[in-house]
Amino acid sequence: EPLWIRPDAPSRCTWQLGRPASESPHHHTAPAKSPKILPDILKKIGDTPMVRINKIGKKFGLKCELLAKCEFFNAGGSVKDRISLRMIEDAERDGTLKPGDTIIEPTSGNTGIGLALAAAVRGYRCIIVMPEKMSSEKVDVLRALGAEIVRTPTNARFDSPESHVGVAWRLKNEIPNSHILDQYRNASNPLAHYDTTADEILQQCDGKLDMLVASVGTGGTITGIARKLKEKCPGCRIIGVDPEGSILAEPEELNQTEQTTYEVEGIGYDFIPTVLDRTVVDKWFKSNDEEAFTFARMLIAQEGLLCGGSAGSTVAVAVKAAQELQEGQRCVVILPDSVRNYMTKFLSDRWMLQKGFLKEEDLTEKKPWWWHLRVQELGLSAPLTVLPTITCGHTIEILREKGFDQAPVVDEAGVILGMVTLGNMLSSLLAGKVQPSDQVGKVIYKQFKQIRLTDTLGRLSHILEMDHFALVVHEQIQYHSTGKSSQRQMVFGVVTAIDLLNFVAAQERDQK
Results as ranks from 00 to 15, higher is better:
469 F>Y: 13
256 Q>N: 14
282 D>A: 07
478 Q>W: 11
500 L>V: 11
450 Q>F: 13
270 D>T: 09
380 L>M: 13
348 S>T: 15
239 I>C: 01
295 F>L: 09
252 E>V: 10
361 E>Y: 10
336 P>T: 06
268 G>I: 04
275 V>I: 08
354 Q>P: 05
340 R>F: 01
285 F>Q: 01
305 L>R: 04
408 P>G: 08
278 R>E: 04
256 Q>L: 11
429 L>S: 09
279 T>M: 11
406 Q>A: 07
459 R>E: 01
354 Q>G: 04
417 L>V: 12
495 V>G: 12
297 R>S: 03
383 P>Q: 08
504 V>F: 12
357 F>T: 05
384 L>P: 12
296 A>M: 06
384 L>D: 15
284 W>R: 01
355 K>F: 14
382 A>I: 01
483 G>E: 12
445 Y>N: 08
472 V>S: 09
490 M>N: 15
363 L>H: 15
313 S>H: 04
347 L>H: 01
386 V>C: 14
413 A>W: 07
487 Q>P: 09
412 E>T: 12
333 V>W: 01
467 D>L: 07
279 T>R: 11
293 F>I: 01
372 H>F: 11
471 L>Y: 09
387 L>Y: 09
359 K>L: 09
240 G>C: 15
426 L>A: 15
499 D>A: 06
287 S>Y: 05
455 D>I: 12
485 S>F: 13
464 L>Q: 11
453 L>F: 12
356 G>W: 05
455 D>H: 11
268 G>V: 01
372 H>C: 13
296 A>Y: 01
417 L>R: 10
344 T>D: 06
280 V>L: 13
398 I>K: 09
431 A>N: 15
284 W>V: 01
429 L>H: 15
389 T>Q: 01
257 T>N: 14
289 D>Q: 01
461 S>D: 05
329 Q>F: 08
486 S>I: 12
452 R>M: 14
419 M>T: 13
473 V>A: 14
346 F>S: 04
302 Q>A: 04
320 K>V: 06
276 L>V: 08
400 R>V: 13
467 D>R: 07
448 F>C: 13
281 V>F: 09
401 E>N: 14
495 V>E: 01
292 A>M: 04
456 T>R: 08
359 K>S: 13
440 V>F: 06
410 V>Y: 13
426 L>N: 09
413 A>H: 03
328 G>D: 11
274 T>H: 01
484 K>R: 01
380 L>N: 03
283 K>V: 10
240 G>N: 01
335 L>A: 06
428 S>T: 11
316 A>L: 13
492 F>D: 11
414 G>C: 10
300 I>R: 01
304 G>A: 01
457 L>R: 04
353 L>V: 13
407 A>Y: 09
419 M>F: 12
510 D>C: 13
289 D>R: 01
253 E>D: 13
355 K>W: 09
285 F>P: 01
403 G>A: 07
313 S>N: 07
254 L>T: 13
415 V>L: 11
296 A>Q: 04
471 L>T: 12
413 A>S: 13
250 E>N: 13
437 S>G: 14
393 G>P: 08
462 H>P: 06
456 T>Y: 09
397 E>N: 14
418 G>R: 05
509 R>I: 07
430 L>E: 13
334 I>T: 14
389 T>I: 14
313 S>T: 14
300 I>H: 07
331 C>T: 01
353 L>T: 14
280 V>C: 15
419 M>C: 14
254 L>Y: 08
433 K>T: 09
417 L>W: 08
301 A>M: 14
297 R>D: 01
322 A>S: 15
294 T>P: 01
416 I>R: 08
318 A>Y: 01
326 Q>F: 07
479 Y>N: 11
419 M>Q: 09
402 K>P: 14
430 L>T: 12
255 N>W: 06
308 G>H: 04
371 W>L: 09
499 D>W: 01
344 T>G: 14
344 T>C: 07
414 G>A: 01
388 P>C: 07
238 I>T: 15
321 A>M: 11
428 S>K: 01
408 P>E: 01
406 Q>L: 05
408 P>Y: 01
497 A>E: 01
474 H>A: 05
497 A>H: 07
411 D>P: 13
443 V>A: 15
283 K>C: 13
496 T>W: 01
343 M>V: 09
407 A>D: 01
511 Q>T: 13
509 R>F: 13
384 L>A: 01
339 V>Y: 08
287 S>D: 01
259 Q>R: 14
307 C>G: 08
482 T>I: 09
413 A>F: 12
